[in-house]
Design a protein around this nucleic acid. Structure first.
Length: 325
DNA sequence: ATGGTTTTTACTGCGTC
DNA sequence: GACGCGGTAAAAACCAT
């Protein structure tokens, strides 16, 4: 942004001014001839005004690389750094080549020139869209990071999410979809892939996009990118729920076991994995005599108590079936 | 759009502290 | 009487077709 560079250069000059003031007072003198020293920002040197001895060299010159002789020129020559805000994709900074085949005076270009301009336009457009994609990516990655840390997802999940996002970007899946939406979907997908799934609701809570859109984009990118994502395994939710409820390892183990036998019995198909996990955790707590209420479990799992009841009955039944024969 | 399935909502009754 | 739990019916959400 314009400010950042300007600010720094004015800061610099202010600092130099102060330095000069102190120099007057405590006599920064040339070691050769005893003359006055002056700092030359232009070339990053400290020079003696009398004999021209260069005292310090190769200081970093943070000032602009151009010289301005009046304020108008300063404005014209002032350069800007990379934009630090990603809100707009190009902030109107990128170059545009006019579509009319006229030169600066309005004269029509020769056919040779026209051809050249056409090529330039093509390339300019290519670079510009690449640029915009990079900015786009930057924002998306920031967003992914924000959501991931809000959900306590580890590093590798973020990595996978950004890989997915990059692929989506490369495959031109973005047009018509929001950056937010796609980054959220990417995160959701990667969390599932990594075996640390978060429910759609949890994801939706930290995203700026609503659930429906996340689900839609998620389905879309999974299909388009051919991602292989198995339905979430209920067991994957167990550790999280268990720790949020301060349950023992023993209870956690039993919850896992319940889910395993349930799976063998085929009780679980079609049921929501989260519900099953919640029920298993609840049942396990019961079996290990740890006090957890249904409402507490429903709270951490975001599942209704009714569902927990239904599921955990089924779980216990399945368990019995296995015990008997 | 439709129909079947699952989940949620809302309400009620029972037992316990 | 509040709380935890269980059950039910109807509504809502979800999913495949």
């Amino acid at each position: 942004m314009t400010e950042s560079v300007r600010d720094r250069s004015t800061e610099r000059t202010r600092a130099l001014e102060e330095e000069d003031e102190t120099a007057e007072g405590e006599t920064l003198r040339c070691p050769e001839c005893g003359g006055h020293l002056a700092t030359d920002t232009e070339h990053g040197e400290t020079v003696c005004t009398e004999c021209g001895l260069v005292v310090e060299e190769d200081e970093i010159d943070r000032g602009p690389e151009w010289r301005a002789f009046d304020s108008k020129e300063k404005d014209e020559k002032s350069r800007v750094g990379a934009p630090t805000t990603q809100m707009m994709h190009d902030k109107g900074l990128s170059t545009n080549i006019g579509w009319q085949d006229k030169d600066a005076y309005g004269k029509t270009l020769s056919s040779r020139q026209r051809e050249k301009m056409q090529r330039l336009r093509t390339w300019n457009e290519r670079f510009r869209t690449r640029d915009s994609k990079e900015r786009n990516l930057k924002q998306a990655l920031g967003e992914i990071d924000r959501m991931a840390s809000a959900l306590g997802l580890p590093e590798n999940v973020r990595e996978t999410a950004s890989v997915i996002y990059r692929r989506a970007l490369a495959d031109d899946l973005l047009p018509g979809r929001s950056i937010e939406g796609v980054s959220t979907a990417a995160l959701y997908a990667s969390a599932r892939q990594a075996g640390t799934p978060r429910s759609l609701d949890e994801i939706a809570n930290v995203s700026r996009v609503d659930k429906d859109e996340i689900a839609r984009t998620y389905r879309y990118i999974v299909r388009e990118l051919g991602l292989e994502i198995k339905p979430a395994d209920p067991e994957q939710y167990v550790p999280r729920f268990a720790s949020e409820l301060d349950l023992s390892d023993e209870a956690e183990r039993r919850a896992r076991k319940l889910l395993k036998t349930a799976k063998e019995q085929g009780v679980h198909s079609g049921k929501s994995p989260v519900g099953l996990a919640a029920a298993a955790v609840y049942a396990a707590a019961l079996l290990t005599n740890e006090k957890v209420t249904q409402s507490e479990v429903s709270e951490v799992a975001n599942i209704s108590e009714v569902t927990i009841r239904n599921r955990y009955h089924e779980l216990l039944e399945a368990e019995e079936q296995v015990q008997l024969p």
